[in-house]
Structure formats: structure tokens, C-alpha cells
Design a protein around this nucleic acid. Structure first.
Lengths: 209, 209
DNA sequence: AAAAATTAAACAAATGTTTGATTAATATTA
DNA sequence: TAATATTAATCAAACATTTGTTTAATTTTT
């Protein structure tokens, strides 16, 4: 899926608006205005608003899991190191693509089956498989305990990161960090979540703290 | 805030539709049809669609935190027991009010400040205060370690439960549990999440597993 | 008799999409 | 290269629906 500059401009404007106002809460005129393109260009390039969302998903999804996969193929790394890398991978991904993940979150809770919800399900399953593989590897090596419920563990990973990323403004306010520059805040946030989740995973996987 | 039967009927129909299709994705005609009331009754009773959402929030929010508060005032309980009760309280709440929490989730990630987002912020702050109190109590008693980031810990609690509750269907499919009766599945789910989170909290709060 | 509830119809504004004409870019031919 | 033909991009306007809300009349309840 290759898009030209104008298409990407439209996609990324749509991403911003969908994330903050929801899919139905955003009109194609909103997108056209904000992206400074003619209204008809959206139908011209994407066919419909619905298909624009699909294009956004395809644009954001390509190549991401590949990165994780190749990272985890490294035979040199201990299981717990792979787990820690995976944690940081998701933290980084959610931070850099936080707008996209707000949209995914919304689509995920929607009941109706659409083309995009199929894509999400696919992605979730793939992630699940990868993580399961790492953990089984660690169990075979005797590094991790038995009886680990991977989906629930994933829920803690994704849920924690997702909750913090989508409600950063609450975190800022509660901790009186409104004045901190955004870059510094992001860095602080990532470090804190990383330490927190690595501690949790170690405790659950090895029963050591 | 006391609503009559018809108002509650409208509110709960709206809840179902807002949860599954989003606020903007639901028309007042959808609600009127599904609730089997005349279209005009919604404006008549609530003033507007926006205010109907506010009414839903007021309807669902009243009395919930009170229950938690009174639960935690019990002087007989050890700190870790209070923490465990709190965990189960949130699990139970998210399960019984899962439609409402889908809506809260959506509203929470929206950027625009509305009357409802104010209510959410208020609720979050209040929960934060309660949990902070329990943890400080445990720290004073020497049961819990120092240096606990309460907002991040809360993110793990809320994030994990929220993620699992809003994506139950994924969990079912991944574990091939589609045929299990819903009641049984809910019970299993609650037990699993409860054990999981209590383990995590104990590890973080006491550094023991 | 007064107040509250209910209704079908109407309202203007906003919605996603299409049209048909015009301009710009690219390819083809002489 | 210059002229021409073809395709792609851009645009304002129009289209038919859907939207949230109001009206004014009628029925039901108090």
C-alpha cells in the first residue's frame, strides 16, 4: 500500500481528528478543511470516509510487527531480556503512535464487525502468538514458572500503557506537571512505565522481585 | 437526581447504543426507536442529546464511590485486605457496568472538555485519593514499601480490568471459550483477573510474591 | 380545570457522496 | 523539439439523506 504525499496528508489529518473527536464525530468537511484540500478529493482518493479509515489502518499497521519479530529472533538474548525488550517496544509504539491507538481503542470496543475491527483482531492475535512464543521459550529454559495466562498478562501490558497514554493529561494534572515541557514529560513517563511493567513481568514470570 | 421509569428506560437504551456505536454514532432516532418512545420525548425529558449523556453519567455515578468508601473505613481490616477488597470492587463494578465503562473510556480519550469529561476527571481524582489513603496507611503500619507511584499503579488496575472487560470477545475467541455460557464465563473471568491483580499488587506493595 | 405526557409533522443545518466542468501533468506522435 | 492526445488532479456546486431540535395540537393524568 503506497500513498502519495497528498494522500498521506489527508490520512494523518484524519488520524488526528478521529483520535480526538471519534470517527462519527468527525465530518469529511472537517478533514478537508484541516488538511487544506478540496472536499471531493477524499472521495476521489479513498472512495469513502469508511475506506479512508481502512487506509489509515493499513498505513499504520504495515511493518510494525515485523520490527518486533526480528528483534525477538536474536538467539543471544535471555528470555527475560526479550520480555523487557518487548515491553519497551510496546511503550515506544504507543507513545509514537498514540493518536492511532486512541482510534484503535475506540474501534475495539465497538460491537459491530467492520473491516477495521478484523484488522485489529488479526494484529492482537499475532502479538499474542509472539509473546506466547517468548514465554514458552523461557519456560523451557527453566527461567519462567509454569501456568502463565498470556492473554491476561498482555491485558496488563497493553491496558497499563494504553490507559496512561490516552489519559496523560490526567496524570499531568494529578502530579502538578502541567508546566513540564512535553518532551521531558514523555521521557519521564516512558521510563516510569517501563520500570513498573518490567517489575510486574519479572514477578509474574519468575516469582522473584 | 431521580428519574421516572420512562426516563430510566431511555437512559439505559442510550447507554447500550452509546457503548456500542459511540455518542456521535448514535442518533436520537436510534434511541427513540430502540426504547420505543416518541422522538420528541428525549428533548422533552432531557433537553438535548448532550444532556441525555450527562443524565446517564449522573444516573450511573451516584452512590458508587460511597460504597467503596464505607468499605474501606473498616478499622478491623489489614491494609493488604483493603487493597484486595478494592481490587474486587473495581472488577465487580466494571463487569456489572461494562456498557457504561465503554462510554467512559471513549469520553476519556476525547480531547474536548465537556461536562461529562469534568465528571470523569472528578471521579478519577476521588478514586486516586481513596487508594492513596489506603496505601499510605499500609506504609505507616510498615506493611507496604515506600516510593509507590499511585497513579501508575491505578493505571495497571483500571487498565487491565478495562482492557479485559471491553475486549471479552477476543479473550473468548483466543481461548476457544465461545460455547461457555455467559454467566460461567463472567465468573471465570472475574476470578482470573482478581488473582492476577492481587498478585501484582502484593508484589509491588510488599516486595513479596 | 390545570398540568404533564405524548404525538406527527416540520424545521434548518449538517452529513457523505457525486457531478460535470476546468486545469495540470504526462505520454504519444509528427 | 513542438504539437497533440490522454490521463490525473482539482474544484465549486448540487444531491439526497440524516441530523438534533421545535412546534402546535391532542391525549392522559392529576
Amino acid at each position: 500500500m503506497k500513498f502519495n504525499d497528498k494522500q498521506i496528508q489527508i490520512i494523518e489529518t484524519a488520524e488526528k481528528l478521529f483520535a480526538n473527536k471519534g470517527f462519527s464525530g468527525t465530518s469529511v468537511r472537517d478533514i478537508a478543511d484541516e488538511a487544506a484540500v478540496n472536499l471531493a478529493m477524499i472521495s476521489y482518493y479513498f472512495g469513502s470516509k469508511e475506506k479512508l479509515l481502512e487506509s489509515l489502518f493499513k498505513h499504520r499497521m504495515e511493518g510494525t510487527t515485523l520490527k518486533l519479530e526480528s528483534m525477538l529472533e536474536n538467539k543471544e538474548l535471555a528470555s527475560i531480556e526479550k520480555v523487557n525488550m518487548m515491553i519497551d517496544f510496546f511503550i515506544e509504539k504507543f507513545h509514537t503512535e498514540n493518536l492511532f491507538h486512541k482510534i484503535m481503542m475506540r474501534e475495539q470496543v465497538a460491537s459491530q464487525r467492520t473491516a477495521t475491527s478484523e484488522l485489529i483482531q488479526q494484529l492482537k492475535k499475532h502479538n499474542q502468538t509472539l509473546v506466547k512464543a517468548i514465554i514458552h521459550e523461557g519456560q523451557k529454559a527453566g527461567d519462567f514458572v509454569k501456568n502463565i495466562d498470556v492473554p491476561i498478562l498482555m491485558a496488563t501490558l497493553i491496558g497499563t500503557v494504553s490507559n496512561l497514554v490516552t489519559t496523560q493529561h490526567y496524570y499531568r494534572e494529578i502530579n502538578n506537571l502541567q508546566d513540564m515541557p512535553d518532551e521531558q514529560f514523555q521521557k519521564l513517563m516512558k521510563k516510569k512505565i517501563s520500570t513498573h511493567l518490567k517489575f510486574i513481568f519479572k514477578a509474574i514470570l519468575t516469582h522473584e522481585v
